[in-house]
Amino acid sequence: MTKILLLSRNPRTSTWVEALQGAGFSVETKEDPKKMASEVLERLPDLLILEKSLAPELIADLIFALKENLNLAFLPILLILRETSDFEDELPIDDFFFESANGDEVAARVKLAFARTCRIADNNPLTGLPGNTSILKAIQQKIDSEEEVAFCYVDLDNFKPFNDRYGFARGDEILRLVARLLSNSVQFHAGHRGFVGHVGGDDFVFICPLESVEQICQEIIDSFDRLVPHFLDEEDLERGYFIAKDRRGQIQRFPFPSISIAVVPNYPGKFKHYGEVASVAAQVKKLVKQQPGSAYFIDRRRGPYQVSG
């Protein structure tokens, strides 16, 4: 059953709960914001309704933690507001209603919020990160605004043989690991100026301000290399490699998965179209891939994009 967590001390709470239950939802009501927040982090509901005035700062913290750090963009969050002036557009929420709302309105808004999240089909189901459409949009928008950002194309080395040896479930854990590392690093160093997307499989893209790209890349690489042994079996760790089939079906030794980042800086006038960025990234990727282990490589060419011969 779809579980809604409702934080409210509003006298109308019971009528809202009744209407929501009537619409087939299971509702849990909390009055203490702190208890609610700690419980949300431990047991996620399917939708959150929060009376913001009960603890404005804590609620803002919680919303950012859920929507940005944990990539829970699909978890709908509704706020209960006193008046229109309470509305803040920087909070990544899905909808709001006023304290005076009646039960039918609340139930309708909740249904609409669920319907809306189903429509955001672009997000990657495994990592919750935005997918291709959003990535291309984000790249094009940076090109058009001529911001000095870095477009970073991430992929893993030896991921296919890893999947072959350890199975897809373990492979998915590695992909979630990468998603978390990218989001947390970009979020911490670039905040709202950053973007992280998941193209699919082991391909990711992130965008960050040019001045922090080296720091972010190095941090991602260090964390990845430190964490990846936790996803390997003891016997392979002791040997220092794992055994799997290569592309031609031959049994072979493989080094542990590592992470490669191809960095393409955006200078004003360098690119016109996102397709150009992708083709430069493909060239840079070849260079990164030549290096053993985890690495990043920055394309230092400043001039406008030219079709290479």
Binding site: L41, D61, N69, R180, L181, L227, H230
Partner: peptide, 29 residues
């Protein structure tokens, strides 16, 4: 998403992110 994998705080923080840790501390009883 990482059952039985992570055994140190520093690795956990890298995976959970600053905002989550922040919320966790604020809500600690």
């Amino acid at each position: 998403g990482f059952p039985r994998r992570i055994s140190t705080v520093s690795n956990a923080i890298v995976l959970l992110g600053f905002n989550v840790i922040r919320t966790l501390v604020i809500t600690a009883s």
